[in-house]
Amino acid sequence: MKAGIIVFPGINRERDMAIALERSAGKKPRMVWHRETDLSDLDLVVIPGGFSYGDYLRCGAMAAQSPIMAAIRGHAARGGHVLGVCNGFQILTEAGLLPGALLRNQGLRFLAMDCHLRVERADTDFTRHYQRGEVFRAPMAHGDGNYFADDATLDLLEGEGRVIFRYATPSGEVTPAANRNGSARNIAGIASANLRVLGLMPHPEDLVDPLMGGEDGKPLFDSITAALAA
């Protein structure tokens, strides 16, 4: 698997992502500066977390207009794999590669804590190393992670099986208390229709080492590494 991490100005979790990818894939991903335009060497394009353009205007809005987005769109259109985490998820929705939008957290405060995610589908290239219904822990760290889409879009996502992760209790119940940012239907991560573009708010890349408190996030990177093993 050849992975590349897109670096927009203000992105700040690119190194965390590189550590997680290297841990699973055994080789370093390529850091791709946002002014580059050629992604044809990559199997997996990752947009990491951070505050691209300072989160000014709206989170991800300015990055979504950046020239490299044309290349990312092309990669996705060719059936390539794209992973967007946190700000990366926001950028994917702003660019229209995933539906919906991420609003301010319902409590209007930044949330830095571990959350629990229930795996809704274990038959995607990103989740095969999890079991369906399995719950795993992931740190979250965001001010704008409140997933919103209109009811028709939400119904479509559910109908097509594109909700991949939901906020849940450690025992897997989908409750309002487990949904700290207020996301519609507890949605933490969704995929494109072909299941190859995945966006999620929490940070599985920050929990891939027992020393940091666990390896709950590692199956996600093991899954995509296995799926794209050349």
Partner: peptide
Amino acid sequence: WEQYDYTIGG
């Protein structure tokens, strides 16, 4: 501390 990102950097 739940308003401070303490995990970034991994």
